[in-house]
């Protein structure tokens, strides 16, 4: 049977070695056009089991933490040296007593924590208690094996603080909630929302520069002096372990 010349040519092309050349060319054009996407995708799937996983990111974080700790130690040493040069109070980091919270009353009429270290461990009335986030209160009373910590939130509890950015002092007064009131001593507080509130370097009762909280609201027009509402950074409701600073400076 006589076939059309064009059909015969096509048949011959697929039957002959030209087919291989044609397919290879198509394949190469495809790879060039997609910039090797197929290869890269297959490669990424194949190497997925041996990729550096969470372990490596943890090593990196650990390394960064070590670096930060070293820098912190250097800065602390500098700070101590400069404070000594200026005859200011110091914080003795090595004299901390860790204690567990054994009873908690952080929202009722009286706001305090009971901790499992007392006079036997060298805890005295008035010592500073810190937790994750900063200052949480002062030792109110001690027994032989326990101590009671009066929280900063307890109504009537007042401590001297300052805002480092403005260098203005104030009295932080507990109002029963996690947002105590900061009553400024100056007519013009210069404070802004977001300012960090710390213990005053001039305080004779507390160690200097302990973080307390962040300013959340300011009323500059209040009489007789302006006041701010401070959000505490440490949450006494969630803290199970605290540290008592044996020497308040």
């Amino acid at each position: 049977m006589i076939q059309a010349r064009r059909k015969i040519g096509f048949h011959l092309f697929f039957k002959s070695g030209f087919r291989l050349i044609f397919l290879t060319a198509i394949f190469l054009i495809g790879i060039r056009w997609t910039k090797g996407a197929g290869y890269l995708d297959v490669y990424s799937i194949l190497v997925r089991p041996i990729l550096p996983g969470t372990a490596q990111s943890e090593w990196l974080k650990e390394g960064q933490n070590i670096e930060k700790n070293i820098r912190l130690q250097i800065l602390e040493k500098d700070n101590i040296r400069l404070r000594r040069a200026l005859s200011l109070k110091e914080t003795h980091n090595e004299e901390k007593i860790s204690a567990a919270v054994i009873s908690r009353s952080s929202r009722s009429w009286w706001q305090y924590l009971e901790i499992n270290k007392g006079a036997k461990d060298g805890i005295l009335k008035g010592q500073t208690v810190i937790g994750p986030g900063g200052l949480i209160g002062l030792i109110d009373s001690t027994t032989l094996f326990t101590s009671r910590v009066r929280l900063l939130t307890d109504p009537g509890h007042q401590v001297g603080v300052w805002i480092d950015r403005t260098k203005r002092h104030g009295i932080l007064t507990g109002m029963g909630t996690n947002r105590p009131k900061l009553i400024f001593l100056n007519k013009n507080s210069l404070a802004k929302i977001g300012d960090a509130v710390t213990t005053s370097p001039a305080s004779t009762l507390l160690p200097p520069n302990l973080i307390i909280g962040i300013v959340q609201f300011i009323d500059e027009k209040a009489l007789p002096t302006p006041y701010a509402i401070v959000q505490l950074t440490a949450s006494p409701e969630a803290i199970d372990w605290v540290q008592v600073l044996k020497d308040n400076g």
């Binding site: 929202r107 009722s108 009429w109 109504p155 009537g156 109002m175 029963g176 009131k181």
Partner: peptide
């Protein structure tokens, strides 16, 4: 009784005697 005693004891509470914490407690 506790509420009234606290207001009498702490002068600063006199201006804020009806605030959220007391009502909540």
């Amino acid at each position: 009784s506790i509420w009234i005693q606290k207001i009498m004891l702490y002068s600063f509470l006199r201006n804020n005697w009806f605030y959220s914490w007391s009502i909540y407690a």
